[in-house]
Design a binder for these strands. Structure first.
Lengths: 113, 113
DNA sequence: ACATTATTTCTATATTTATGGAAATATAGA
DNA sequence: TCTATATTTCCATAAATATAGAAATAATGT
């Protein structure tokens, strides 16, 4: 992953409202949530929400699809994967005690169980 | 990890200059690098660099220690670990195909080899 | 075609963040 | 103490980002 793309992805979740939106969409799974439902749940005015959704979409972290009058947004796991991979490789690389300790121990336990 | 702390950590690296600084410090290892060396390598004016270093320090991603006239900065792996763990748990949680696929496959190969 | 509902775009404004020169501070050697 | 070097703080300014009401657009059912 390119440096600039990483910054774009990071910027898009480096904001409280957007991080919450993304977390909510991760929880919601593949089906996603309609914009209105997100706004209601997180108490964000429609236009502000729209701004943040556009931001996340532009970065590629979420996708949208229209279902009748609603627009459903859902999390893009691949994008987050890419970001995690970038951070693991570029911001920990070669440093044992960084990713190996925590990230992988955790995920390995999940796999084993 | 708290939501707000995650945003703070993310914000601190969601900026091209700061992400480069952090990557450089990760490469530099435990010894770290003096402010001047960082500025020279990345072509960042002293005052601007100082601003970014303060930002990273405040978030807890880097630490500094004085060595004679120089101030050496070094990466805080634990903080990055914490962030990766947060993202893995909160932004992928339960979604197979997210962290398990990429992050852990990668780190597992590193461990096996 | 019209009314209703969902969402976005437009617009203005407020707030935060970034940049870098100049001056101030700190450390150390002569 | 004087000088040189490293770094930070101060300051003004520029640029980017966030907020939300009002108007516009889009989709649906009647």
């Amino acid at each position: 992953m390119e440096n600039k793309l990483a910054v774009q992805l990071l910027s898009s979740i480096a904001q409280e409202a957007r991080l919450e939106i993304f977390r909510l969409l991760v929880q919601a799974g593949a089906e996603g949530l309609a914009a209105g439902a997100i706004g209601e749940k997180l108490k964000i005015p429609a236009s502000t929400l729209s701004f943040h959704l556009k931001e996340l979409s532009f970065a590629g972290l979420i996708s949208s699809r229209q279902v009748s009058r609603f627009i459903y947004y859902s999390a893009n796991y691949e994008a987050m994967n890419g970001l995690l991979a970038y951070l693991t490789e570029n911001c920990c690389a070669g440093q044992q005690g960084c990713c190996s300790d925590l990230t992988c121990d955790t995920t390995m336990k999940e796999i084993e169980s």
